[in-house]
């Protein structure tokens, strides 16, 4: 959208002239059916709140034991990072790197960026890096794979339960909460609103200086 009121569909490039939708309305592209925008109320406040919660939950989810197993009188517990290290020890470093990025580093960077951006917008603080952060966050969207990891935990546990007793730790509960938060965060974040607010902040800043 720009000052002329025109917009283009990102997937079929149809030129559209639509009024700004109201909160709760959904706008689909009339030609290809893509959901173009769905404004939500208090989006910046909500994103900020969810980012804080997610950022806090990230640490117990990564540091507390998730799943424990006992076999032949020995016991093992696993967290996200110990899986990466085990793969690394088996000379599987390409896989270890992929798992590390998709399940630890990218989620952390993504939630931090979302915290930074929504925090700046919430307090109306201009920052010249806002555009850069926003761009990075959009690029990372697809590579944060926590919900896929959750499904892997379920499948792995079903497999293992057949051979040995399992114990679930606080890390797992924190991880589940983190997934709920990140899913809510990415599915409700109104990128168009964020970009408009960033533009507004930049303009105000230019006038003030």
């Amino acid at each position: 959208m720009n000052s002329t009121g025109f917009d283009a569909c990102p997937e079929c490039d149809l030129l559209i002239n639509l009024a700004q939708p109201k909160i709760g309305e959904k706008v689909h592209c009339p030609r290809c059916g893509l959901l173009l925008s769905q404004p939500r109320k208090q989006n910046i406040e909500r994103t900020f709140a969810l980012s804080i919660a997610g950022f806090i939950l990230f640490f117990p989810a990564n540091l507390l034991p998730m799943v424990g197993i006992s076999l032949l009188g020995n016991a093992n517990t696993g967290i996200l990072m110990s899986g990466v290290i085990s793969l690394f020890d088996q000379n599987m470093w390409p896989v270890a790197v992929v798992v590390f990025l998709a399940s630890i580093l990218f989620p952390l960077v993504h939630i931090s960026l979302s915290l930074l951006i929504s925090g700046h917008l919430y307090f109306n603080r201009p920052n010249r890096y806002l555009v850069l952060w926003m761009r990075w966050m959009q690029h990372l969207d697809e590579w944060v794979m926590l919900e896929v990891y959750m499904l892997s935990i379920i499948v792995a546990c079903v497999k293992l339960m057949a051979i040995a007793p399992l114990k679930f730790g606080w890390g797992l509960y924190a991880f589940i909460a983190l997934i709920v938060i990140t899913t809510l965060l990415t599915s409700t974040l109104d990128k168009q609103l964020f970009w408009r607010r960033i533009e507004q902040l930049r303009k105000d800043n230019r006038h003030a200086s």
Partner: peptide
Amino acid sequence: MLDIFMISILVDLVN
């Protein structure tokens, strides 16, 4: 990526 993450979990726990 399901299978890849599952391997990371299994390799770690069954050791």
